[in-house]
Structures are given as structure tokens and as C-alpha cells.
């Protein structure tokens, strides 16, 4: 359902520009009617004039991933849009997936740990640092990291490009190479993502720790560690997992930006280039695929949610 909804929005968005074929037509040198016909044919039904059959074709084509050809020649040797996406998607999935999982793995325990430090000076330090990091936009942090780590000290490569086969057909050397190139962008994403989780988790923990049943558990002689991990953490997970869903969209936008800065040839770079060049078909296909990824991640969260809290059923 959400997918169809996204399609509607994309259609409205892109069609508000007018007929793409005409736009391109005016940018060519020879304004002849036959030229227009040729362009329309090249674009396929994706970019024909606004009409009902065209709209239906649009749906059919989008849902079957026929995004047509790239407008301005091949991108990295891929003439079709789907080919270009196929080449770029693994990078983004890798970046997004690893950042989401690692951010979660680091952020939650860190949040729980911070709640241990209640009332101490170190807690204030952690919270200040986390708030600062969490509020820095992705591109600022990415640029700073890029300039220092890659630009000044050459610890990591200046260009993030590496063969896609390192990801699709992994060998030990290939994974190593991929890791070497992707580490910096992942770190940037994880830093911001994990700090967000840390803050939410800590806030949730603090409110749960004030509840009566925690005092009861303490009176029962449950060791502090178990109180934190079993009694408090599971209750505190509820708001965190709700936030996770929102975080995915945020993280995806971050991944796109970070890719551009570190020149990783993923979806971000693809989208960026196509938008700059008015490469409408590529932009349309790219946006659609990214939306699909986020929608898929959303639906995973719902399952996690039901497992955490038995009351959620109601």
C-alpha cells in the first residue's frame, strides 16, 4: 500500500514539472516535431504526455522496475536506469545496513550504560557529547572527517570508489578493500545514529527506573546489573524501537549525503548526479528504489515491537 502511495507522490512530483520530453526538446538544438517524437520514444511511456493510459503504463513500468533509459548517455557503462541502480545499490545497502545495525548495537548498550552513571559528572560529559554529535548535520561531520582523515593524514583513501564485485562476489581481499573504503562513511553515520539511540535509551531508562516495580526488584535483592538489563531495559526498549522507524528515513538521507562527500559510487552519488543534470528517469527510479528500502526496514520494526511488549497487542 505504502509503495503505491509513494508512486502516486512521485508521479505528482515529477509531472508537476510538465512533460519531460518537452523539457528536453527545448534544450535540444533542433526544434522540430520529429525530434520530439524521437525523444518521447526514447523515454518510453515513463515520460509521455499526461494522459490516462500513460499513467497506467507508468504504474506498470514502475512496479516491474522498467525505468527506461538514462537521458544523457550511459552512466558507468549502464545505458538503462535499472542497470545503473543495480550497480549503485549494493554500496548504499551496505552502508545503510551496517550503519543501522552497528548504530543500534552501540547506541542501546551505551544508553543503558549512561543510565548507570546517574548523577555523576561523567554522565553530563557523555550527554553533552552525545547531544552535540546528534545535532551536527551529516554533511558537516562528514566533511570534517573527510578533510582530516583523508585529506590531511591520508589514513583512508580520498576516493571511495571500489569495484562493486567486492560486495557482490566477496573474497577476503575484496571485503578488506571494501572495508577500507567504506569505513569512514560508516563511522560518520554510526556516530550520529548511535548518539541518537543513546539519548533516547537513556531518557527511557531514567523514566523506567523511577517506576515502582524497579524499587520492588531492588528490594527483592536483584543485582543492579540484572535490574538494568532485565527489568528496565526491556521496558525502555519500547520508545526506542518506535523511534527506530523514524530513524531509518533519517539515516537513509544521511547515507545519500555521506556517499556524495566520500565519492562512494552508490545511490546517493547517482541521485545527486542525475538531479544536477536533470536526468529525470534516473532520479525517478532511484527515489522509488530508496523508498522501497525504507518501507522494508519499517515493516521489520513492527515485528520487533510486538516481541518487546506483550501489551502492544492491545
Amino acid at each position: 500500500m505504502l509503495v503505491l502511495f509513494v508512486l502516486v507522490i512521485l508521479y505528482v512530483m515529477f509531472r508537476l514539472l510538465g512533460n519531460p520530453a518537452i523539457l528536453i526538446f527545448y534544450s535540444t538544438k533542433h526544434h522540430t516535431a520529429s525530434e520530439l517524437k524521437i525523444i518521447e520514444a526514447e523515454l518510453g511511456p515513463l515520460a509521455g504526455p499526461i494522459s490516462f493510459p500513460n499513467f497506467i503504463y507508468y504504474f506498470k513500468d514502475m512496479l516491474t522496475f522498467h525505468f527506461g533509459d538514462s537521458l544523457f548517455g550511459a552512466i558507468d557503462g549502464h545505458q538503462t536506469v535499472i542497470g545503473a541502480i543495480d550497480a549503485a545499490l549494493p554500496y548504499t545497502l551496505m552502508l545503510f545496513g551496517i550503519a543501522a545495525v552497528v548504530g543500534f548495537i552501540i547506541g542501546l548498550p551505551a544508553g543503558i550504560f549512561t543510565s548507570f552513571l546517574r548523577g555523576k559528572k561523567s554522565e553530563k560529559a557523555v550527554i553533552t557529547a552525545a547531544t552535540l554529535l546528534n545535532s551536527i548535520p551529516f554533511f558537516v561531520l562528514a566533511i570534517i572527517v573527510y578533510i582530516y582523515v583523508a585529506g590531511y593524514y591520508h589514513i583512508f583513501p580520498l576516493r571511495g570508489t571500489f569495484p562493486v564485485t567486492d560486495l557482490t562476489k566477496p573474497t577476503i581481499a575484496g571485503v578488506e578493500n571494501a572495508f577500507y573504503h567504506l569505513l569512514m562513511p560508516i563511522l560518520v553515520l554510526v556516530a550520529i545514529e548511535a548518539m541518537g539511540h543513546l539519548l533516547t535509551m537513556r531518557a527511557a531508562m531514567v523514566s523506567v527506573l523511577g517506576e515502582d516495580f524497579i524499587t520492588t526488584a531492588r528490594a527483592k535483592g536483584v543485582p543492579e546489573k540484572d535490574i538494568m538489563l532485565h527489568h528496565a531495559a526491556r521496558n525502555a526498549m519500547v520508545p526506542v524501537s518506535t523511534r527506530m522507524a523514524l530513524e531509518f528515513a533519517f539515516l537513509m538521507s544521511g547515507a545519500v549525503i555521506v556517499e556524495v562527500i566520500f565519492t562512494v559510487p552508490g545511490m546517493g552519488t547517482l541521485l545527486y548526479d542525475s538531479t544536477i543534470k536533470d536526468n529525470i528517469t534516473v532520479a525517478e527510479g532511484g527515489l522509488f528504489i530508496i523508498s522501497l528500502v525504507v518501507i522494508f526496514a519499517y515493516s521489520l520494526v513492527d515485528f520487533i515491537h510486538a516481541w518487546i511488549d506483550p501489551r502492544i497487542k492491545v
Binding site: M1, L2, L4, F5, L7, V8, Y11
Partner: peptide, 8 residues
């Protein structure tokens, strides 16, 4: 489009 929105 409205049909899709109704489904949604």
C-alpha cells in the same frame, strides 16, 4: 490516484 489513497 484517489483510489490508491483510499486503499492506503
Amino acid at each position: 490516484m484517489s483510489g490508491i489513497i483510499i486503499m492506503f
